[in-house]
Design a binder for these strands. Structure first.
Lengths: 112, 112
DNA sequence: ATTATATTTAACTATATGGTTAAATATAAA
DNA sequence: TTTATATTTAACCATATAGTTAAATATAAT
């Protein structure tokens, strides 16, 4: 019997952070806003009813997950999207979402 | 200026739950184990070092997110995968992961 | 040098999460 | 009917999360 929870690999820790970052609608909205390009913290915060400090914290969560990047110019912080970081999460989900479809495809191949 | 956080729609609440459910490596492992087919709580728990009660709670989180389904037969609960529930999360990520690639594709189309 | 702007950090609160052990519930077997 | 099995619920603990306001830091403008 193989048991798990041995070592949480770096890849697993990254998946944890990426999925957790996306589990909040405000953060997903931040990702959406950043498709318009690089933006300042206060520009982003203007779209929300919560405080700028709260938005700043959400951006840190996205940054720690590697989903957004920060460029600092003087007192101003510019945030931008790093979409490649979503690849691991996308691939993980795709495997299991497509699970039954893959099985059906395999059956089709056997019948050919 | 359009502000958000007006009403958390049912679709957003579902995405919140699905992403949050996937943000834990033990739960992702449960999903993986369930690709082998319907299994009992105690069968699943045997793969982990944590208690059966803890596994039972993780299964509830996956069930609340709609990722797994439960069939009760007497005292035994059989859990199975509901992969279609991952579609919304997959689609959400795909939009943003493909964001730059789509932009590049659009540029390619203009050059043709 | 003073003031205003951009943002983070600190301190705090409330609630959620992930785990535990003990007890309860439901069903099956002896 | 007594006992064993399968699982959940309850009560609890420690840590994490999401928000707040106030203070600190860094930089730019007057």
């Amino acid at each position: 019997m193989v048991k798990y929870k041995n070592e949480p690999s770096a890849a697993e820790a990254t998946l944890n952070r990426v999925f957790a970052a996306l589990a909040d609608a405000n953060r997903r909205q931040l990702v959406h806003l950043l498709t318009e390009g690089e933006q300042r913290v206060s520009d982003l915060a203007a779209h929300f009813s919560m405080s700028l400090v709260a938005v700043s914290k959400h951006l840190k969560v996205l940054e720690a997950a590697g989903i957004v990047r920060r460029r600092v110019d003087g007192r101003t912080h510019y945030l931008s999207l790093n979409p490649e970081q979503l690849t691991g999460a996308l691939d993980w989900i795709a495997v299991y979402r497509n699970f039954w479809q893959q099985r059906l495809d395999q059956l089709d191949n056997l019948e050919e």
